[in-house]
Amino acid sequence: LGHGSGGKLGADLVARMFLSVFGNAAEDAAACAGAGRLAFTTDAFVVRPIFFPGGDIGRLAIAGTVNDLAVSGALPRYVSAAFILEEGLAMADLERIVASMRATCEEAGVVLVAGDTKVVDRGKGDRVFITTSGIGFLPQGRALSISAAQPGDRVLVSGTLGDHGIAILSQREGLEFDTALTSDVQPLADLAQAILQTCSSVRCMRDPTRGGLAGVLHDLATASRVGVRLHEQAVPLAPAVRAACELLGLDPLHVASEGRLVAVAPADEAEGLLAAMRRHPRGRESAIVGEVVADHAGTVVLRSRIGGERVVRPLAGEQLPRIC
């Protein structure tokens, strides 16, 4: 790739690749139609490697933004994408990324309506960076909030945790595990809508990306001034992820997922919601993993198999050994 920033070649690039693929991103701004209150989000994506088992940076960039909208309760509709490409990126790689983005948009039910591309000199970037923004619409009266959890509520997750983080790490560092590890990256708009249709009183949803389930629940415990109790046995983990975490010394509760959501629902609706989530193709391995408690506000504890309760800390940088 040798196209300068903003010049003719850049325009050619956009024309040739993005217009042909996405069709409707030619105007400087897109006019977005929709009903309800507007939900708007933006996120930047840098990932090494850009292609990994189960996905690539393009799919990640669409799913990440779509999921941020979806867990807020909005129906995602429009997405924009800005690319920073490093000189030397193979055109075939870019084509693969863009095709993956288009497929993911279709899967998520969103339209990519605006885009931009800049090319930077070799060494000034890392192959490709993508920033996506998304617009969705929130129905009147829907107000999911991280501060809405109440004692007694149940915590649900939509599938196994940490698959994405472990897949990326092992690919990037060349760790050859016995079992292949695949990222869980996927858009969750349809699953989120199914959840809201089944259980209108769901308190909040979050996607456990960076910081993992521990990070989400810590935010919840702090914002809602409640405690959260997790049950170790109930947390769904793929056997390969569990084994990799043991070898790496990582707590799977801190490892990122990119195709999972966490939902908090009133106790009496939790079982019904769980059944609905399990019926959905993106929620087959959903589980109730814990409950909200009035005790120990601001603290998440993990109840082990033998009944001990360990404090789950939010991730503060690298996990450093504490044991003397």
């Binding site: 790490l169 560092e173 760790l175 050859e176 595990f177 016995d178 070898l247 790496l248 010394g249 996990q319």
Partner: peptide, 24 residues
């Protein structure tokens, strides 16, 4: 073998492997 291979990769690439000067 597989375990050792991953462990050696962790050591060499310094993945999840903080440095220690511990006598213990």
């Amino acid at each position: 073998e597989a375990t050792l291979r991953v462990l050696c990769a962790m050591i060499d690439r310094r993945v999840g492997s903080p440095l220690t000067s511990s006598m213990g």
